[in-house]
């Protein structure tokens, strides 16, 4: 790895981190959600899914896969290890025409369009926008002594799955190129990709390897807002039909039932929007805490405790508790 690519920090693999990172790169209306099962109902819950990211603790895998070139596809080799999460997200964002990339990333995409995969990977490494955004999420290494010296970060690897031009692709920056898994339509791509991801999950759970699945999706609040608008429209139509004199009483009562259920749906969607907003507020606070250096707080706290003679009693308390625990477990 060249010197040019130093200075990429590790960041936490967390939906809140990724969601805000995407926003900061300038891409609109996107969020990242964790997937807990590969169930169709789980997919439905999330609305429009642009791509999936499978992450796992990296292990040597000798299996060479057959790659399928497609010049239209954005595929980059993984040049910078610490950037792999960001790279996996980019490979989903860059390969979907409906996503608003924003000016800077849009320029980056057209600038790198003709690049071979290696140069694309290097371009990611050299992009100030991407690197600086990525690094802004690193946890401050406040201890003068780099604590990472002894504590090796576990290397995680990220693979993206996307639908592209009628095929499901697996994008793995450590492979020679994109891997076409199956034919698909925009409607059935998740159904098609599921067995491939399932296979990986089975493999890794046998080997006790930690893995995680995330989805890059359309902003949920937007999706819900659109749903509400559609329902409101339907409601207007039904209401006017209801007031027409030609409508029979029987029909009117049917319409009333329908209207009630629409109102219910709107209520539910509004509640979900509130929950989304709450979630985003939490993300924001969490990310602020993530970036915060707690060392000055902790050290001053220790000193204050010492000044009030409260420090050693707390040490004693911790000792007593541990002893109690040991006795209980005996």
């Amino acid at each position: 790895m060249g010197d040019n690519y130093e200075g990429w920090c590790t960041i936490e693999s967390d939906p809140g981190v990724f969601t805000e990172l995407i926003q900061q790169i300038g891409v609109k209306n996107i969020q990242v959600e964790e997937l807990y099962t590969l169930d169709p109902s789980e997919y439905n819950r999330l609305g429009e899914i642009y791509g999936l990211i499978f992450l796992f603790k990296w292990m040597q895998d000798k299996e060479e896969k057959v790659v399928s070139e497609n010049d239209n596809l954005f595929f980059a080799y993984q040049v910078i290890n610490n950037a792999c999460a960001t790279q996996a997200i980019l490979s989903i964002l860059m390969n979907n025409e409906t996503i608003e990339l924003g000016e800077e990333l849009g320029n980056f995409k057209s600038f790198t369009k003709e690049f071979p995969p290696l140069m694309k990977g290097e371009a990611i490494g050299n992009s100030d926008l991407i690197r600086e955004t990525h690094n802004s999420f690193s946890v401050p290494d406040s201890f003068i002594i780099s604590k990472k010296k002894g504590k090796k970060e576990e290397p995680f690897h990220f693979i993206s799955y996307i639908p592209f031009e009628g095929k499901v692709y697996e994008l793995d920056g450590l492979q020679k190129g994109p891997i076409s898994l199956d034919d698909c339509t925009p409607e059935n791509w998740l159904e098609k990709v599921t067995p491939f991801i399932q296979k990986r999950m089975d493999k890794y759970s046998q080997g006790e390897i930690r893995f995680n699945l995330m989805a890059v999706i359309k902003n949920r609040s937007t999706t819900l807002q659109e749903k509400i608008e559609k329902l409101e429209k339907e409601k207007v139509e039904l209401t006017s039909k209801q007031s027409e004199t030609s409508t029979s009483d029987e029909e009117k009562s049917k319409i009333k039932l329908k209207l009630d259920s629409i109102d219910n749906e709107i209520d539910t969607a509004n509640n979900e929007i509130l929950m989304e907003q709450e979630k985003f507020r939490n993300y924001k606070e969490e990310n602020i805490r993530r970036k915060h250096n707690f060392l000055p707080f902790i050290l001053n706290l220790i000193q204050s405790l010492a000044e009030k003679d409260k420090l050693l009693p707390l040490v004693q308390k911790a000792k007593d508790q541990s002893q109690l625990k040991q006795q209980q477990s005996k």
């Binding site: 946890v139 406040s142 201890f143 003068i144 002594i145 604590k147 010296k149 002894g150 504590k151 969490e286 805490r289 993530r290 915060h292 707690f294 060392l295 902790i298 050290l299 220790i302 000193q303």
Partner: peptide, 30 residues
């Protein structure tokens, strides 16, 4: 904050640094 995983992580990092033998350097900060 005191109940957040980020604060807990910072404490664990400090614990680790102390057990790695950096307690002296850290107490110098105070």
């Amino acid at each position: 904050i005191l109940h957040s995983p980020q604060y807990a992580q910072a404490l664990e990092g400090l614990d680790y640094a102390i057990f790695e033998g950096h307690g002296g350097e850290i107490s110098q900060l105070l």
